[in-house]
Every structure is written in C-alpha cells, then in structure tokens.
C-alpha cells in the first residue's frame, strides 16, 4: 500500500517555497518526509497536508498531461509533477517559486489570463470544401508536422520563460508568445486550412519580437521544437511575403498566391 511505503531511512525533503501575494511575501522553509519516486508536486502536497493547508498551488493530472502545475524549481521553469526529487542532491534545499511572467495571485498560483486573451485573437481554423465523395482526405506525411504542435499541453512555460514578456512587461500587448506561434503554425500548416495569418503574425502577434534565443524550446515538457519547427518556419513565410521581393516576383510569375 502506498501509505506504508514511506522510506525507512527517514530521508527528508527540504523545501523553500514562496508564500505570499503581489503585495508581498517571502520564501519559507518546510521539511517533509521523502518517499521513493516522489516528484516536487508530491512534496508540495505533503506540505499542504502537514504544514500549510492554505498553500495555493494549481494541479490536475499529476502525469504531465494537463500542464497545470508550472512553477520555477531552483529558478528553472518546470512542471512540478514531472520533476523528480531524486534529480537533486540529497539534502539540497529546493526552491519553488511561482512562474515569474504573470501576475501573482497567491503562493505558487499566478494569473495566466494573458494567454487566454491571446488565444481569442487567433483567426480560427477555416477548412476548404470536402472532397467530391464527401470525405476529408489528409495524409500522414502532411499532418506529422502539425501533430507535433498539437502535443502542446498549454502549461505556458514557454510563455513564462520568454524574455520578450518576462523581462519587458510593456511588450505584452503586442506579443502573442511562443505558445501562440505554435498555434498559428499548426493552423498555417494544416492541410485543410484556407485562411492566411501572416499579416496577423507580423503585426498583432509580434513575431518580429522573437530573437530566437530558444528558451521556449528548452523548457517545453512536451519536447516540441518550438523555435526550429514553428517560429522559424513562420518567420521564413513572413520573409517570403513581406521581405523578399524576388520571391514575390517569382510567385507572381508562377501565378501562385504565396
């Protein structure tokens, strides 16, 4: 039984957890018993149950599938449920802070509504007509690229780590962030979609703010190659449309739209 499996050696987890809200707070130290296989989220739950019932934390699936428990563990943006305690030095004090880019609500919980507002601005999927036989035909090689983007669990760690908004709050109105570049890429490369979002990408979404320093890719728990597979290909498409007169000329000669 799970509850009987407390490590017999009396191992302990030493944690330093942010407590407080936007008006102020501090890192507070907690110590709880450590069991085999524990992840950081388990330890946070243990702190809740034993020391601080009101410790605010978001979580749902505890299996890396829902993307709720984003935080900064020893300064690195991570999912708490996928950060195993045995990846740290025994006896090390582990610091857990809320994600920095978004307004702090309380303890480890932040207001991520920025992302939900940005999601509303994305021009939605607009499919072309069905085939003559009434089916929708798409081929695996055409959707492989897009399926990678659909793996996104919306943990917003990429948004959190992106310095464009993390360190420059004033860019928030004019920058959609890596999550939504992935989303737009998934629509632009969708074999059935007919809409055109390049103008949107360049202007409202602020693709040009990205200086491809790749932190979004580094922190993605789904290992989506955000920069190489979505942002740069979108930048290249924007170049073709807006910065490459020769491509435009060839396109016009070839009678193609893009």
């Amino acid at each position: 039984m799970a509850e009987a499996a407390v490590a017999g050696n009396g191992a302990e987890a030493k944690m330093r957890v942010w407590r407080g809200d936007a008006s102020g707070g501090e890192f507070r130290d907690y110590t709880v018993p450590l069991q085999e296989g524990m992840v950081v989220l388990d330890v946070i739950h243990a702190i809740q149950a034993m020391h601080a019932g009101d410790l605010a934390v978001r979580w749902n699936c505890k299996a890396g599938k829902c993307g709720s428990c984003s935080a900064e563990v020893n300064g690195k943006p991570r999912l708490m449920c996928m950060t195993r305690m045995n990846t740290f030095e025994p006896g090390e004090t582990i610091t857990v802070a809320p994600i920095k880019t978004f307004p702090l609500i309380r303890d480890l919980v932040t207001d991520v509504s920025y992302n939900y507002e940005k999601a509303k601005t994305i021009p939605p999927f607009k499919p072309k007509p069905k085939e003559a036989d009434g089916t929708r035909r798409m081929y695996q090689e055409d959707i492989d690229r897009v399926q990678e983007f659909h793996k996104c669990i919306e943990c917003y760690l990429c948004q959190d780590v992106c310095h464009v908004i993390r360190d420059h709050d004033d860019n928030k109105p004019s920058f959609a962030g890596p999550r939504f570049f992935v989303r737009v890429a998934s629509l632009e490369m969708h074999p059935l979609d007919t809409d055109d979002r390049l103008e949107f990408l360049r202007n409202e979404a602020g693709l040009g703010f990205c200086n491809i320093t790749k932190c979004c890719t580094e922190v993605c728990p789904e290992h989506i190659k955000i920069t190489d597979n979505s942002i740069i290909p979108m930048k290249e498409r924007v170049v073709t449309r807006f910065y490459d007169p020769i491509a435009r000329l060839l396109g016009a000669l070839g009678g193609k739209k893009s």
């Binding site: 300064g75 690195k76 920095k100 780590v161 993390r166 320093t213 932190c215 922190v219």
Partner: peptide
C-alpha cells in the same frame, strides 16, 4: 538578451 533562460535581460 537574455544571457540564459530565466535570467533577466
């Protein structure tokens, strides 16, 4: 800009 991930510009 930035020097490393989660390190201030």
């Amino acid at each position: 800009s930035p020097p490393a991930c989660a390190v201030r510009d």
